[in-house]
Amino acid sequence: MASDPLSPEETRRYSRHLVLKGIGGSGQQALKAARVLVVGAGGLGSPAIAYLAGAGVGTLGVVDNDHVSLSNLQRQMIHTTDGIGDSKVDSAGRFVHALNPHVDVVLHRERIGDDNAETIVAGYHLVLDGTDNIATRRAVASAAETVGLPLVSGAVSMFDGQVTVFAPGGPRFGDLYPAEANDEDLPSCEATGILGPLTGVIGTLMAMEALKLITGIGEPLIGRVLTYDGKGGRFSEFSY
């Protein structure tokens, strides 16, 4: 992935990355050249979008067919009260442009599923999925696998969350979620509730995994699930 040189303004903006061992100029150039798709501009997508935009990901795609509602604002911090009723992707686009005008935003105002997932993800280098139903998650995972893209996957419920990475050649979505799993197995936040900052914890971890994959630093969560117990204040992990 090649990109244009950093401008003087970008050099100042990303100065904390540029002096960071393991990132530096080459890492920031990789971020600028990256095309990242965030599926879902809700609880997990919001912090992921914010930190990817702040980090200087050059092209950020957002796909969502939902609109901002009042109940979203307890946890979806890129949206505002004035934006209630607006398309979530339009709201996300305004947030990104206000935070970092160097990021190109591609807005997909549509529901992603089996019929269009492969077409949408094909234009990107990396996918993050923060959706809340297993049918969509399965469709996105299948498309990413077909196209050969790494996928950062997060999930939350009530006080707990988890994040993992599916990468080409590694364990697959079906190794973690059996084929018989369906949405009835996953409690909805409308029915059970969710503590707002939990989505920030997991969504930010998703952004962290994305930056690691783009820049090549560290050890991504491939074949490992990092879990967070919000009530107990504990992280743990298991392999699959």
Results as ranks from 00 to 15, higher is better:
residue 105 V to G: 04
residue 105 V to Y: 08
residue 107 L to A: 14
residue 108 H to A: 09
residue 109 R to K: 14
residue 109 R to S: 13
residue 110 E to W: 12
residue 110 E to L: 15
residue 111 R to A: 15
residue 111 R to L: 15
residue 111 R to K: 15
residue 113 G to H: 10
residue 114 D to C: 14
residue 115 D to F: 06
residue 115 D to N: 12
residue 115 D to M: 11
residue 116 N to H: 11
residue 116 N to T: 15
residue 116 N to G: 15
residue 117 A to I: 06
residue 118 E to A: 15
residue 119 T to R: 13
residue 120 I to M: 09
residue 120 I to H: 00
residue 120 I to N: 02
residue 121 V to R: 04
residue 122 A to S: 15
residue 123 G to W: 07
residue 123 G to Q: 07
residue 124 Y to C: 05
residue 125 H to W: 05
residue 126 L to F: 08
residue 126 L to M: 08
residue 126 L to E: 04
residue 127 V to L: 06
residue 129 D to C: 10
residue 129 D to L: 09
residue 129 D to T: 09
residue 130 G to E: 05
residue 131 T to N: 05
residue 132 D to H: 11
residue 132 D to T: 07
residue 132 D to W: 12
residue 136 T to E: 10
residue 137 R to Y: 10
residue 137 R to I: 07
residue 138 R to C: 10
residue 139 A to D: 11
residue 140 V to H: 04
residue 141 A to V: 01
residue 141 A to F: 01
residue 143 A to S: 10
residue 143 A to I: 07
residue 144 A to E: 01
residue 144 A to G: 03
residue 144 A to M: 02
residue 145 E to I: 01
residue 146 T to K: 12
residue 147 V to D: 01
residue 148 G to H: 04
residue 149 L to T: 02
residue 149 L to F: 03
residue 150 P to Y: 03
residue 150 P to K: 11
residue 150 P to W: 03
residue 150 P to C: 13
residue 151 L to I: 06
residue 152 V to W: 03
residue 154 G to R: 01
residue 154 G to C: 06
residue 155 A to R: 03
residue 157 S to V: 14
residue 157 S to N: 14
residue 158 M to Q: 15
residue 159 F to E: 14
residue 159 F to R: 08
residue 159 F to M: 14
residue 160 D to P: 05
residue 160 D to Q: 13
residue 160 D to G: 11
residue 162 Q to A: 11
residue 162 Q to V: 07
residue 162 Q to Y: 04
residue 162 Q to F: 06
residue 163 V to W: 01
residue 164 T to K: 06
residue 165 V to I: 04
residue 166 F to R: 00
residue 168 P to W: 02
residue 169 G to V: 00
residue 169 G to Q: 00
residue 169 G to N: 01
residue 170 G to L: 05
residue 172 R to M: 03
residue 173 F to T: 04
residue 173 F to A: 02
residue 174 G to K: 08
residue 174 G to T: 13
residue 175 D to K: 02
residue 175 D to V: 03
residue 176 L to S: 02
residue 176 L to E: 01
residue 177 Y to W: 13
residue 178 P to Q: 10
residue 179 A to Y: 07
residue 181 A to C: 12
residue 181 A to N: 12
residue 185 D to A: 14
residue 185 D to W: 12
residue 185 D to G: 08
residue 187 P to S: 13
residue 187 P to D: 14
residue 189 C to N: 08
residue 189 C to A: 12
residue 189 C to T: 12
residue 190 E to F: 14
residue 191 A to H: 05
residue 192 T to M: 14
residue 193 G to T: 07
residue 193 G to V: 06
residue 193 G to K: 10
residue 196 G to C: 07
residue 196 G to P: 13
residue 196 G to M: 03
residue 196 G to S: 10
residue 197 P to M: 11
residue 200 G to S: 12
residue 202 I to Y: 06
residue 202 I to A: 03
residue 203 G to R: 02
residue 203 G to S: 10
residue 203 G to L: 05
residue 203 G to Y: 06
residue 204 T to M: 12
residue 204 T to S: 15
residue 205 L to A: 09
residue 205 L to P: 12
residue 208 M to Y: 11
residue 208 M to C: 13
residue 209 E to C: 10
residue 211 L to E: 02
residue 215 T to I: 08
residue 215 T to W: 01
residue 216 G to K: 03
residue 216 G to A: 10
residue 216 G to P: 00
residue 217 I to G: 12
residue 220 P to D: 02
residue 220 P to Y: 07
residue 220 P to S: 05
residue 220 P to L: 00
